[in-house]
Simulated scan of single mutants.
Amino acid sequence: MEEEREEYTPQQGGVEDRKAFVNKFWNFVEGHILEKAFNGRMISWIVAIAIYAVLQVGYNYSAMRKIKMISTNNTTLQDLRMEHITLSTELMNDSRITTIEERVEEAGLTICTPKTAPIEIKE
C-alpha cells in the first residue's frame, strides 16, 4: 500500500510546477489575474473603499482642527485666569486704608482716619 501512495503523490519541484509558478507570477505582474477576476461587483467595492478613505481623511482633518482649537482656547483661558488674579490682587491692595491715605497725601490733600469704630444710629 505504501507503494501505491507514492505513485499518486505529485512530484514536487518538477519542471511543471516551475512553469505553473512562472505563469502565475507573470499573470499577476501583467494584471491578467485582476482582469479575469474583475467584474461589476468589484467596481462597487472599489467605490465604497474610495468613499470610506475620503471620509476618514475628512474626519481626521476635522479632529486635528478641533484639537488645535481646544489647545488655543486652553492657552487663552489660562492667560485670562492669570490676568484676573493679577487685577484682583491689585484691587485688593488699592482698597486698603493705608494705600488710600498714601494716595490722598500724594495728591496734597489732608485726611484723617477715625480712631474709633463707627456708631450705628438707631431710629
Rank of each mutant, 00 (worst) to 15 (best):
118 P>Y: 03
11 Q>T: 13
75 T>H: 01
90 E>A: 13
20 A>E: 12
121 I>A: 11
47 V>S: 07
72 T>R: 05
62 S>F: 11
62 S>M: 06
109 L>R: 09
18 R>N: 10
76 T>D: 00
30 E>F: 03
30 E>N: 12
74 N>Y: 02
58 G>V: 03
8 Y>P: 00
67 I>L: 12
60 N>W: 11
32 H>L: 10
19 K>L: 15
93 N>V: 05
121 I>F: 12
55 L>C: 07
40 G>L: 03
63 A>T: 08
81 R>W: 06
70 I>E: 12
63 A>I: 07
71 S>M: 04
121 I>H: 09
22 V>H: 09
68 K>V: 04
110 T>H: 09
18 R>Y: 08
58 G>M: 04
121 I>L: 13
78 Q>R: 09
51 I>W: 02
113 T>K: 13
107 A>W: 01
4 E>D: 12
8 Y>A: 11
3 E>Q: 15
27 N>V: 00
104 V>I: 15
41 R>V: 04
40 G>Y: 02
10 P>K: 07
99 T>C: 02
72 T>V: 11
79 D>K: 05
47 V>N: 09
77 L>Q: 05
28 F>K: 09
5 R>T: 07
73 N>Q: 15
110 T>S: 13
23 N>E: 15
102 E>S: 14
82 M>W: 03
16 E>A: 12
33 I>C: 01
89 T>L: 07
1 M>V: 13
17 D>Y: 01
29 V>H: 02
89 T>W: 00
70 I>S: 07
21 F>P: 00
18 R>V: 05
1 M>E: 12
25 F>K: 07
50 A>V: 08
68 K>R: 13
48 A>S: 11
104 V>F: 02
94 D>G: 02
11 Q>P: 01
42 M>R: 10
70 I>H: 03
7 E>V: 10
